[in-house]
Design a protein around this nucleic acid. Structure first.
Lengths: 102, 102
DNA sequence: TTAACATATCATTAATTAATGATATGTTTA
DNA sequence: TAAACATATCATTAATTAATGATATGTTAA
């Protein structure tokens, strides 16, 4: 099952197009974190966070390593962080353009 | 109803995280197009395309201008095209990294 | 080795949403 | 003006998915 480039883009965008998942990914930009740390930081249930982490991992956006009873999650690539920066820059640019044309 | 930055990002990503909408936006990178042109190019129904165009316009991703009985749609900002380029570059970079570590 | 802790999985429920077909609105042209 | 064309809107249906609570699995420490 090889995806077309457009399908790959959609999969990637879908993975980030959820408030909880985007907050997880932004939290992981700072440093790797355990499930419990993310649960506390985001104020969501453990089951909910674990489910989202699973999806993000399958999508190739994050990776994990186990250390004793803890599982540390982190971004799979620095390209993800660059992309998030670009997303933010773009929204700011669009907001500015919208104000200028008003 | 002012959105937080994270919410704005999610809204934007949701708007593009659909195969039909992403294809529309990529089709509009080339040049402005009418609804009928998009219907033909994408092979979808007119009602379906119109609905997606409406959503993309509300999201601020595309804009439109009417010329007689035609409505021409185009990208709202060149920042959108830049973002799509970045998305594609990132996916290619991630694919390369995945192959290297294999 | 049992209790406590960390994480993953599963079934259910509620909500969201894309597609469709029908119809309405608006514009041009015969 | 009426027919043809272009686009928008609406109700319905089907499918997807996020959240929740419960439970299972795996790890450490008492």
């Amino acid at each position: 099952m090889t995806l077309t480039l457009t399908e790959s883009k959609v999969r990637f965008l879908e993975s980030l197009a959820d408030k909880t998942r985007l907050r997880i990914v932004e939290a992981l930009r700072e440093k790797e974190k355990t499930v419990t740390q993310l649960v506390q930081e985001l104020g969501a249930t453990q089951s909910n966070i674990s489910g989202h982490l699973r999806l993000l991992k399958i999508s190739g956006i994050i990776k994990s390593r186990q250390e004793g009873k803890y599982v540390y999650y982190s971004l799979a690539s620095s390209a993800i962080a660059d992309f998030l920066t670009k997303l933010e820059d773009m929204l700011i640019a669009m907001k500015r353009e919208a104000l200028e044309s008003a």
